[in-house]
């Protein structure tokens, strides 16, 4: 057990779709400061879990605690205000806005209300300065004034991360940040996540096992809507159940 209270604590959440339990009593603890990865075969319920953590899907049963507070029924936008940010598996940006505008919007969401009708947002340094910082951290400052849709795939994935960290979250939920990336782009993303861990906790849902084992402090394995094992990368590698259920299967698939 953790000596201190976990930052995120999932207690027995259940989500059923008809007869299928996509989450079948998921338990998960994410400690402050760690990179915690969730792995599992396709159909294990990762997407459903992410949906429930971000607030887009409401669990049928169970509890989600963030920093000790029950957020099970808290809407998405308020979870963001509490410090829970996310990126999306399928790139989700504002394609027709500039890269800087994309990130500035994320900053704006956390810089007071937006019922401001007269003062131009483009002149608010309070929005643009933190946005530029987030772009610098993600290596996108060169593209600040490009239209987001024109970025390369890997750059758009990093823009996703930039938007997440611009909200100064305490926990970032990254849903397959390396999806569809080539080796070079993947390496850049791993470097970026290494850098991020200095000031935020990361919950990583990832398919690329090299990425998972290179970054994770702990790994939880999700199979058929349940966490069958949680532990250090070494422990997970050595775990016979995990090999049977997942790592072995991948082997067979390959």
């Amino acid at each position: 057990m953790n000596p201190s209270q976990p930052l995120l604590s999932v207690r027995g959440i259940v989500k059923r779709y008809g007869g299928l339990a996509a989450s079948d009593g998921v338990d998960l603890d994410v400690a402050t400061g760690e990179i915690h990865s969730i792995i599992g075969p396709n159909g294990a319920g990762k997407t459903t879990l992410v949906g429930q953590l971000s607030g887009e899907i409401r669990p049928d049963a169970g509890q989600i605690l963030f920093d000790g507070r029950d957020i099970t029924t808290v809407p998405t936008y308020r979870r963001s205000a509490l410090g829970l940010a996310r990126s999306f598996q399928v790139t989700s940006i504002f394609p027709r806005l500039t890269v800087l505008e994309n990130v500035a919007l994320a900053v704006q969401a956390h810089a007071g209300h937006s019922f401001v009708f007269w003062r131009p947002a483009a002149e608010e340094e309070r929005l643009r300065e933190p946005a530029r910082e987030a772009l610098a951290r993600t290596g996108l400052e060169r593209h600040a004034s490009s239209i987001a849709a024109t970025l390369a795939h890997g750059e758009q994935r990093r823009l996703e991360v930039a938007m997440a960290i611009a909200t100064e979250p305490r926990l970032v939920l990254l849903d397959e940040p390396t999806a569809g990336m080539g080796p070079e782009e993947t390496r850049q993303m791993v470097d970026l996540l290494h850098d991020l861990r200095r000031d935020t906790t990361i919950l990583l849902v990832e398919h690329d096992m090299d990425v998972v084992f290179a970054l994770s402090d702990r790994i939880s394995v999700l199979v058929y809507g349940r966490v069958i094992a949680t532990g250090s990368p070494e422990a997970i590698r050595a775990n016979a159940d995990v090999r049977d259920a997942y790592l072995g299967e991948e082997y067979a698939d390959g």
């Binding site: 887009e56 809407p75 998405t76 936008y77 308020r78 963001s80 999306f88 994320a106 938007m163 909200t167």
Partner: peptide, 9 residues
């Protein structure tokens, strides 16, 4: 969807 995720009601 993204607007909600970054914190806008």
């Amino acid at each position: 969807r993204r607007m909600n995720a970054i914190g806008f009601p």
